[in-house]
Design a protein around this nucleic acid. Structure first.
Length: 554
RNA sequence: GCGCCCUUAGCUCAACGGAUAGAGCUCCUGACUUCGGAUCAGGAGGCUGGGGGUUCGAAUCCCUCAGGGCGCGCCA
């Protein structure tokens, strides 16, 4: 039950009737909003402002007529007050009964309040992290991981069928280079002089890995020819690093349903097939021995190589086969979450889907901007190649899972993030994550105290006693939750939820300070405990959508 | 050079084309004998980077300039 939806439909009904009367087709977009200012009511519509221009009438006059029609449409007394304000807005105040009805619904639904149960929701494949298995996850990957995971939770909660997937780039030059780097490290440990490849991976983790491997196999690969030894090292490096990544994500409570290996596309012949298909569709041509895809004609800035002069396919070819495979599995929406450094790649992929005759609107690419770490007010420098980077594991250890996830999600992923390690690791009032968790702990504490006093919340608490402005305001905040979650999912903006929760927490803490939950009249105590229950449920559900725990004690 | 993203309070950031641009942190001043002070109340802090345009209405859309980030491989 979404207050906004109910309100919106009543307003729309009223407007529609009036439009029919006036003989105006409903092509004008009319919005129902939650005003920023409380004095402007619970909801507000700009309908009259939008219509007045077309009708060549004064907005306020149009508003007056619409208002009458909306009032008529509201047969059940959902609205308490309708007024025309400012340049011609129609402001709406809901009746107390309406809010109480929502609260009752929130109590019935419990932790499913705000959830959408849809049998045939959109089938979404959400692909994220997909970091090359050439090193441990760092703080940048962490952001993509949490954003993707939270989005998956939000979409699932709002009625989508979501599958999460990690695309493993386990073939190609970079993996070859990784294998060579590990091989060099191994030889070095065996006391042999060996140089890392020019663009090799210099991180300390490969030395550790080489040591671990040598402890298992000893010097067995010392006399083996490089060509023979190399594939072994490549596989060992790739597998073990990927294993580390799996563990990191697990620790971080990031859930991946499927791990999709690039190599499987080669094994199954999908890559070759996609090249053939594009050739049949007349999308390819040869130049200087290489095969190009005509991506420029589909909106990319230039044509791209699919097959190199030496006959090997490019990463782009694999990626095409990969996305085609995803679409063939019946997903109606593919969401890819990429690091912002890959943004130039997006037009190429959409171009390719068009070239394959697919609707490119089924592909949505979200670009997550970079993360800088800040400690004690100073930026921590990072560089993957030199191996000087802060790993996700280190951040989790330093600030904790809850705080790390929360800090990642508190900002729009479309903007750069300064991750303040000093602040995030503080277990004090400066740290906003505890402000929210404290609401939950506090309410649990109230119920512990209630139990001690022998007070039990009844199944049908008298909600009509909740008539104080502070009580109504808290109810209103609770009632917004379904709308916030729904919008957060539609806009692909998880950060709206932490902001909402901070807002709710503020409202609750203020209420707590000014009123008592226990010790009033029995009816009032029942009503307030009901309200507290609803707040606790919303906080708990909201935090779970972020993958953050809701502790009973802190 | 070309392309994409960003620029909002001292700092970090919000704001579905709407009305007087909001939070947190920092700084200052206050509050509880009660259910948890990881709390609450108040104050200070802004020409939304500059300039044009569209609109009844612009932080938001368009153009332009300036500053910052990131791309522009037969790497992935």
């Amino acid at each position: 039950m979404d207050v906004r939806r109910i309100t919106e439909s009543l307003i729309q009904t009223g407007i529609k009737r009036k439009l029919e009367e006036w003989g105006i087709p409903e092509e004008i977009s009319v919005s129902v909003e939650v005003p920023r200012q409380e004095e402007h009511g619970d909801f507000s519509t700009n309908a009259a402002l939008q219509l007045a221009g077309h009708m060549k009438r004064k907005p306020r006059d149009v508003a007056m007529e619409l208002l009458g029609s909306i009032r008529q449409a509201d047969e059940g007394g959902w609205f308490r007050d309708l007024t025309v304000a400012g340049p011609g807005f129609i402001n709406v105040v809901l009746s107390e009964g309406a809010w109480q009805e929502v609260l009752a619904n929130a109590l019935t639904k419990g932790e499913r309040f705000g959830a959408v149960d849809r049998k045939e929701g959109e089938r979404v494949l959400l692909e994220f992290v997909s970091a090359n298995p050439t090193g441990p996850l760092h703080v940048g990957h962490g952001r993509g991981a949490v954003v993707g995971d939270a989005l998956a939770r939000i979409l699932a909660f709002t009625g989508c069928q979501v599958t999460t997937e990690y695309y493993v780039n386990d073939v190609g030059n970079q993996i070859d280079c990784l294998g060579k780097s590990l091989y060099a490290r191994y030889l070095q440990l065996c006391g042999k002089k060996a140089e890392l490849p020019e663009d090799g991976y210099r991180g300390e983790y490969l030395v550790d890995l080489a040591r671990e491997f040598r402890e298992e196999v000893g010097d067995r690969y010392l006399p083996v020819e490089e060509e023979e030894a190399f594939p072994v090292f490549r596989k060992v490096a790739c597998d073990r690093i990927l294993n580390g990544i799996r563990k990191d994500l697990e620790t971080f409570h990031v859930h991946i349903d499927r791990w999709f290996r690039e190599e499987s596309l080669h094994e199954s012949g999908s890559v070759a097939a996609i090249v053939d298909e594009l050739r049949e569709r007349g999308q390819l041509y040869e130049s200087e021995g290489a095969v190009y895809f005509k991506s420029e004609s589909h909106g990319d800035e230039k044509d791209r190589v699919l097959v190199r002069a030496d006959g090997r396919t490019t990463y782009f070819a694999s990626d095409l086969a990969y996305h085609r495979a995803k679409l063939r599995q019946g997903f109606t929406k593919l969401i890819d979450i990429w690091g912002a450094d890959h943004h130039g790649y997006a037009p190429r992929l959409s171009a390719a889907l068009k070239g394959l005759g697919e609707k490119d609107s089924r592909l949505e690419i979200l670009l997550v901007q970079f993360v800088s770490l800040v400690r004690d007010g100073k930026t921590v420098q990072m560089s993957t190649r030199s191996g000087e980077f802060t790993t996700l594991r280190e951040v989790m250890d330093e600030v904790g899972i809850d705080a790390a996830r929360f800090f990642y999600l508190l900002r729009s992923f479309r903007s750069h993030l300064d991750f303040d390690l000093t602040l995030a690791s503080k277990k004090s009032n400066e740290n906003p994550v505890y402000y929210i968790q404290y609401v939950h702990a506090r309410i649990c504490s109230i119920f512990r105290e209630a139990a001690d006093r022998g007070i039990v919340l009844s199944d049908a608490p008298p909600l009509s006693v909740l008539s104080l402005p502070d009580e109504t305001n808290l109810m209103k905040k609770v009632a917004r939750f379904p709308d916030v979650v729904s919008e957060s999912g539609k806009a692909r903006e998880p950060h709206r939820i932490p902001f909402y929760l901070l807002d709710l927490a503020r409202e609750f803490h203020a209420f707590y300070h000014n009123h008592r939950f226990l010790g009033e009249t029995p009816e009032r105590t029942q009503g307030r405990l009901a309200l507290a229950t609803a707040v606790r449920n919303v906080v708990s559900t909201g935090l779970s959508l972020l993958g953050v725990s809701a502790p009973e004690r802190m």
